[in-house]
Computed example of a mutant assay.
Amino acid sequence: MEKIYSLTGFAEEKTENFKFTIKSYNHRFLEIYFQMPDFFQNLEQKFKNLIQEKVRRGKIYVKIELNSFQFPFQLKINKKLLKEFVLFFKEIDPKMQYFPFSVLQKESFIIWEFEEDEKILKELETGFNLCFDKFLKSREEEGEKLRKIILKIAKELKNNLAKMKKRLPELKDEIFSEYKRQIETIFENFKFDEERIAQEAALIALKVDAMEEVERAEQFTERIIEKFKKSKNFQGKEIDFLTQEILRELQTFSQKVKEKNLREAAISCKLLNEQIREQVQNLE
């Protein structure tokens, strides 16, 4: 059985010097955002390529933080830029006694110089791979939960449609008998061929016959169940299309059938169909 992945996932991993966090949310396309120390930016594209190989869509956030300073780097101040800022503020306020240090948080006064260390780079890549594997596992587990939920809803929808289908032949006979009685009552003083009256009543009953709509809705529901059982070449968009077709058939059914119980059953089916559609939005 092919794996089904949820669009939402979360994972964390810690190594000696780093903390990794990967999380994702529902999104129509694949968008990847990184937040990591500047001196490791050259690895961003490598990590992004790895994500693109495994993930088709979703909004993904990757955060890599330092949790230790046990590796070779130097922290320097950009003295030239700092001096220019001091002169600038003195021009604005010659009597300035205190420098607004809050500006340092927004400008590039701090320079990180990192000496590439093979051990540190290996730790960074290994930590990311471990976190990414956990992330994929979380999406898979969530996808499996959604599969079970959707299958349960789809089977309930199928059972409801089967009950509606069972009632329709009886309803058709009742409608035929009622229309035949009305025609005979209206034209009781005229001579009409019984076969002709039966034909007219049958034509009227046929116009309100909704068996085809129920059968098509059943077929679409069965395809959804089959997709989630086998999950071969699974596409969430295809399931979304099938739910739209089911809704169209149920709307036509409601226009044709006037019996209260069947109309209420159709509303229940629409609600179940909408639940399937909402859950499918969370699948890759």
Rank of each mutant, 00 (worst) to 15 (best):
F109E: 03
I77P: 04
E188D: 14
N129C: 06
D173N: 13
L262D: 06
N160Y: 10
S177K: 14
D240E: 15
F176Q: 08
Q52V: 09
E31W: 08
Q244Y: 10
F190K: 12
S108H: 00
K165S: 14
V55H: 05
I110W: 07
I64E: 05
I22F: 05
K152C: 12
A266K: 02
K152H: 15
M36G: 03
Q199K: 12
I204T: 02
F135M: 01
N233I: 00
R223K: 14
I175S: 02
M96Q: 10
M1K: 09
K270T: 06
E194N: 10
Y5A: 08
E115L: 09
E238D: 13
I120L: 10
D209G: 03
K232T: 11
K106A: 07
K137M: 10
E13F: 15
F176D: 03
Q45N: 07
P100V: 05
K152S: 15
I197Y: 04
A198R: 11
K152R: 15
K166T: 15
T8Y: 02
F88G: 00
K83L: 12
E91I: 00
N189R: 13
S68R: 01
I183E: 07
L203N: 05
R28P: 07
L87C: 01
K152V: 09
E53I: 08
A266C: 15
V214E: 07
I110A: 02
F187H: 09
M1S: 11
L136P: 04
E16K: 15
E113G: 10
R216F: 15
T8L: 02
G143M: 01
